[in-house]
């Protein structure tokens, strides 16, 4: 069950998290609660797997190189192929999507050679060719996403 504090933390602190020695205390002051309330609520959100962590979002290709990749896999093999792809430490998102190209994943590598090695490795392990679609332009400014949490 989500409290008003949980919801405020989720919607108001996706960006501009305080860069100060006592950030949870600063948030607590802004919200009129105690530091331990904030830490407890964030711990609950973390334990229930609603948040992955508190940390930075780094634009693509600023550190290392990344690509969006896709494979067309027959439905019967999709689960097994997805497991092989997910097992790569360089893969972060890995989703099934409704299309002929039905497995979509993001690869992040240290440099172009490393990226190519990962792609070749996935092709060899799965037996399918990988379509690589590296970023050319990013039109987005802010990834913060305001959510309607009234029924959570």
């Amino acid at each position: 069950m989500m409290t008003p504090l949980h919801k405020q933390l989720l919607n108001d602190y996706q960006g501009n998290f305080p860069l100060s020695p006592r950030p949870y205390q600063d948030i607590a002051t802004e919200l009129g609660v105690s530091e331990s309330d904030v830490i407890k609520a964030l711990t609950e959100l973390n334990e229930t797997d609603v948040i992955t962590r508190i940390g930075p979002v780094i634009p693509p290709n600023r550190i290392g190189v990344s690509t969006l990749a896709a494979i067309a896999v027959p439905e019967a093999h999709l689960h097994d192929i997805a497991q092989i792809v997910s097992a790569c430490p360089e893969v972060n998102h890995n989703y099934e999507r409704e299309h002929y190209f039905n497995l979509w994943f993001v690869i992040i590598a240290s440099d172009a050679d490393h990226l190519q090695q990962v792609i070749t490795g996935i092709e060899q392990q799965t037996g399918y060719s990988v379509m690589s679609l590296p970023l050319m332009d990013d039109y987005f400014i802010d990834l913060s996403f305001r959510m309607d949490l009234h029924d959570c």
């Binding site: 989720l10 508190i54 940390g55 930075p56 979002v57 780094i58 634009p59 600023r62």
Partner: peptide
């Protein structure tokens, strides 16, 4: 280099 800093949901 840090585009955003905060809670990742």
């Amino acid at each position: 280099l840090i585009k955003r800093l905060g809670v990742i949901v």
